[in-house]
Amino acid sequence: MTRILTSAFLSLFLFLYTGNSFGQDVILKLKPTVNTPQARDYTFRQVVDSRDQKSIGQVYDPQRNKHSASFGGNLPQEALQLYNARISSTKNPSYRILVKVYKLDLKEIYHPDLKAYKGDIQLSLGFFLYGEKETIHLVDFNSKVQYGRPSTQMHFVETSLQKLFESSWEYFDSWLSTQYLTNRALVKKVRLNIIDPIRESSKDTVFYDPKRPLTWADFTETPNPRSSYNATIFSSISIEGNAKIENGEIVQTISVKVYMLPEQSWVKDANDYANNHEQRHFDLTRIAADRMISRLKNVELEPFLFEAILNDIYLDAYREMNRLQELYDSQTRNGINSEKQADWNQIIRKALAGDMESFDKILD
């Protein structure tokens, strides 16, 4: 009788010591480490338990009875505390991290010869970056740990779980240290490299060159006999580019082209006055491109949205170019009104030199 009471008391003492109760469920805990936190430019914002089944498996008590093991619904909070205890974040961290727990499974088997239990724990989770509108998947962690324990030593289970989650942080921290300079999802800045050189023209494409004014030889399409216009020029702007990552920032190269197409441009009466009118159409295309470049140089770009913003700037410039061409032809009556033509000649010359005051008044 005395031995039975002593054994029961010893078992109770061990269960209380490990912080677990062998009632219906065994409640496990993760504990923040007491190690010196590492200075980092990121913080863990949230941990989400994505598992359908919140029990992680079953463990045995000293009488070899099975009990369901879980975190009692506290896994997200405890894991978040564990992760953030490992780091000392900067005041305004560059990266806010979400962790999703996909899988956490525990299996134990009894070894009669050893009178002990062997356990196997598998952990699978993902690290995500909070973006402007959505989370961005960064990397997954998949690992497992095995342990052996005497029947009365439950703390081996919690210790193994603790090691798994700490290993997941070490894995992510190491991954981030090798990725932040080259991984697009982690870049902090966008830098534009705008290329706008004087390009060599060909018979198919005449690129804008202030030292090479248009000649009638650049208008090679057969005139439209039914058109009331004396001449027509097809001029436009385009951009091309590519992006690469250098030292943690996106370097976006934008190549600007201002051109006219001879095979879509024609003239009936090739005189100097008409040539000047068509040259001014080409100049207006150049001005629209200059104004676009000015916007590009002054825009603030975020890594997650910069492509859409650049596209909007280009489309705005294209629409502005068309509006300018229409205003010019409307006010000069396609060059017939010589006074208005002279006014536009002056406005265009100033705009090409960088003085946009008169130009802005016209657009307003």
Rank of each mutant, 00 (worst) to 15 (best):
L80Y: 04
F282M: 03
E263L: 10
L98P: 10
E326M: 09
E132Y: 10
Y83H: 04
T6G: 04
K211F: 15
R149W: 05
S50H: 12
D204C: 00
D343G: 05
T43I: 08
K163F: 04
R295K: 11
V101F: 06
L30N: 07
R226S: 14
D61E: 02
D209T: 04
E134M: 02
N35H: 12
N276P: 04
F9S: 14
Q264P: 05
E200T: 15
V256P: 00
A351M: 10
Y180W: 10
W216M: 01
D329K: 08
V34P: 00
E249P: 03
Y42G: 06
E246A: 04
S89H: 05
D120W: 07
R40D: 05
S174W: 13
I287T: 03
Y328R: 08
F207K: 00
H155S: 14
R291G: 02
Q46I: 15
L114F: 09
R64Q: 14
P262A: 06
P93A: 02
F44L: 03
Q58V: 11
W175S: 01
P197R: 01
N242L: 09
F44S: 00
F306V: 08
Y259T: 04
H137T: 05
F127A: 09
N84E: 00
L327T: 11
Y180N: 06
R319I: 07
K118T: 14
Y318H: 13
S174I: 13
Y42E: 03
T159D: 04
D290L: 12
P32A: 10
L181H: 07
T43N: 00
D25G: 07
Q58E: 09
F207N: 00
R45L: 14
Q58C: 03
E170K: 08
R212H: 08
K133N: 10
Y83D: 01
A39H: 13
L12R: 09
E200F: 09
P150D: 11
L284R: 07
S94F: 06
E263F: 12
T215D: 02
S70V: 11
T253E: 07
D196P: 05
L181G: 02
E132H: 11
L363W: 01
I293T: 01
R199W: 04
P112Y: 01
K361T: 15
Q331H: 11
F22C: 09
L98F: 11
T6D: 09
Q153G: 06
